[in-house]
Structures are given as structure tokens and as C-alpha cells.
Design a protein around this nucleic acid. Structure first.
Lengths: 208, 208
DNA sequence: GTCTATAACGAGATAGAC
DNA sequence: GTCTATCTCGTTATAGAC
């Protein structure tokens, strides 16, 4: 998800395009922007990605792959479901700290103007995330590492959309710190102490 | 928030522009789109709104006003805090059913490309909403109509961003029904007891 | 208040030399 | 694989007739 060092031209184009989509949106960046950032001509970009739709599709494909890799890394790094979910939330926090929106959250806003292939890939990103969250929540509930009401699928969808919304509003309101409060709230939904029983605190943030 | 009948030209321009911003985003609609929808020439639009920034500002100003009017109507229509919050959530549901994104949620995505005046007005929309939610939550807790943990401000922010995210992901995933599940989850956060689902939890203790 | 006409610019995209 | 040059179209915006 971050820039590679000494990458090929295509990868460097994708790095710039990814950043521009995440910060400006698909319709608010141009081949000229990418070309300027890389110090090449617009025509060179078309050699690597014939159309803007192709470029967008490649950006999303790579982003999805990187995101899935991050999820695999989370699973490798911790057994506990709550810890995994905390790290999942932190993936979004990292996006905000780079002053970006989630790539697919941004494209979700642009969705009515996107080519169908791109639209489908964005939808897949959301499905993949919800599937991972659902599995993590189910396993965690089975092991009593997390606790929540309703179906795992429903909670997974709520997890995802809450985080996307927290990023969106943090950017739109100019108050990025509000993301942390939302992150705390959503994690509170699945913490064993947070619901039903006595509440561990008054909503104060935990160190990250 | 909906189209007025027999409105003046300026209002009809705003109606179309509002719809286009909510469906396509600020950077993906043009004066040509608005002109075609109204059956007038582009130059006529500039007579009413000299620049696109002016048009955007007017759209947001009217939207904020209409939203505040809806909130006042909610307060006039019911005393109960939970009922008020349910109606608040329904405001967002109505937006989705019209196949739109929240105007300011959409502009939040576009924020880095917007003129400063527009950006500030979008931030104000979020502040206004959070202030209303905070007040509603505080009063409701005092009267034991709702129950939640943490500060009212924190819950208000979470309410808002969750709903914005639910709209965003519902659109981006092509599964609008997911909004209703998210809406149910977020209302479950403040409900005192179960209603149809299992929101009572398994612990049954009461915070605070 | 709406129109025609057009300016001034930037967009995505292509042809063909090197 | 990158370049120059160009095409075509759409964009915001303005001038001035009616």
C-alpha cells in the first residue's frame, strides 16, 4: 500500500495515481498530474496504461492485493480476535495519518461516474473486507475473545462502513482526531467488557 | 431538501446542481449538465451563479438550511430522544432511497479540490449535525430514554460518521440494503433494550 | 433574463520519430 | 520506452445582441 523503492515505471505510475485518487478522487486528477509528478510526458503514461480506466483498474487491483496482504500479516502476527480487529482499525488510522481517504471509499463516492469494471472491483474490495471481518468476528466469538450482538455478517458490515465514514468525516470536518474516537466506539462494540457488563472506562482512548 | 414546485430559475438550478453533486460529485458535473437538464443555455446559468464555486456554495447553504429545518421538524414531532434519533437515521435512509449520497458526505470526499469557502461550509454542516445529536443524546440520557457509554459528543460524532459511511458503502458495494443493517446497529448503541433483535445483550448490566 | 458566439484552457488519447 | 506534436472534445467563463 505504500511506495516501493526502485520500482519499475509502471509501479511508480501506480504509486502516484493511487495517491491522487485517494486525495482528490478519480475525476479530479489527470494524466498531466501524474506525468508532472514523475517528470515524464503524458504520452509515456499511455504506453503503460492505455486509458484512464485501465489505470484506475490497475490501481484498485494492486490496492486490493496489498490490503489482503495486510490482513494476512495481521493474522500471522496475532491469534487474538480483538487484537486482530484493533490492527484492522489501525490500517484505517494509517491511511488518515497519510492524509488520504481509503482508495475504495473514495471510489465509492465517484461510483456513478466509473466504468463498470472499476465499479465491480470496488465492490469486491468491500466484499473481501467484510468476509475477513466476519470470519474474524465469528472465530473470536467462539473463543470468547470478542462479544457482540447480532450476526457476524451484520457486525462486519457495520465495522467496515463505520471506519469508512470515520475517515470521510474526519477529512470533511477538518478534525482528524475524530477518527480515533470513532475507532474507539467501534472497537467498544466487540470488547467483552464494553457491553452488557460494567464498562471499563468513560470512553477514553487507549494507546495505539 | 426536495424539489420545490413552481420555483424560480435560481431554485431550479439549485435543485439540479444538488442532485448532480449528490450523485456524481462536485468535479464530475458541469454547467452543460445543468443547462441540458433545465433546457437553457450555459450562459444563462452564469447570470444566476457567476462561478461554479458560487453555485456550490449556494447548494450547500440551502442544503444545510433544509437539514436544520428537518431537525427542527423532528423535535416538533416527537419528545422521545430515541424516536428522534430513529427519525434522524431515517433522514439518511431517505437520501439513499433517492439513490444519492449525503451532499456533504460527497463533498467531504472532494474536499481537497474545493474552494476554501465551500470547505468551511461542509465542515459547518458536520458541526451542526453533531451539535444536534449531542444535545439529543444528552437530554435522552438524562430522561433515561436512551442509554450509552462515553460522552455524548463522542457518540454524536460516531452516529454521524457511521451513517455517512453506511451511505457510502451501500452505494459503493451496490448493496443498498446494507444501510438498514448499519442503521439498526447504530441505533442499537443507544437503545435501552431489545426490539426484535438481540440488542439487549447477554450481560444485562446497566452502565452508569 | 436569456440568448449566440467565442475565448482560453485542460482533458484523454493517438501517430509516428527516435 | 519515451519523446514531440497534434487531435478532438469538454470545461469554465465572458462579451454583447436581443
Amino acid at each position: 500500500m505504500s511506495a516501493r523503492r526502485s520500482a519499475g515505471t509502471a509501479e511508480r505510475i501506480l504509486d502516484v495515481a493511487e495517491r491522487l485518487v485517494q486525495t482528490r478522487g478519480f475525476n479530479a486528477f489527470s494524466y498531466a498530474d501524474v506525468a508532472e509528478a514523475l517528470g515524464v510526458r503524458k504520452a509515456s503514461l499511455h504506453h503503460h496504461f492505455a486509458t484512464k480506466a485501465d489505470l484506475g483498474l490497475a490501481v484498485v487491483a494492486r490496492y486490493r492485493q496489498a490490503f489482503l496482504a495486510s490482513l494476512a500479516e495481521i493474522e500471522a502476527g496475532s491469534e487474538d480476535a480483538l487484537e486482530r480487529l484493533e490492527r484492522y482499525v489501525e490500517l484505517y488510522g494509517a491511511v488518515l495519518r497519510r492524509k488520504r481517504m481509503c482508495l475504495c471509499g473514495m471510489l465509492a463516492a465517484d461510483v456513478s461516474t466509473l466504468p463498470g469494471s472499476l465499479r465491480r472491483s470496488v465492490a469486491e474490495f468491500f466484499s473481501e473486507n467484510e468476509a475477513w471481518l466476519k470470519r474474524t468476528l465469528e472465530e473470536g466469538r467462539k473463543r470468547s475473545e470478542v462479544r457482540f450482538t447480532g450476526s457476524a455478517a451484520s457486525m462486519a458490515a457495520f465495522f467496515l462502513s463505520s471506519l469508512e465514514g470515520a475517515l470521510l468525516v474526519a477529512r470533511g470536518s477538518g478534525r482528524p482526531q475524530e477518527f480515533d474516537r470513532a475507532a474507539e466506539q467501534v472497537l467498544g462494540l466487540v470488547r467483552r467488557a464494553a457491553r452488557g457488563g460494567r464498562y471499563a472506562g468513560s470512553g477514553a482512548g487507549r494507546p495505539r
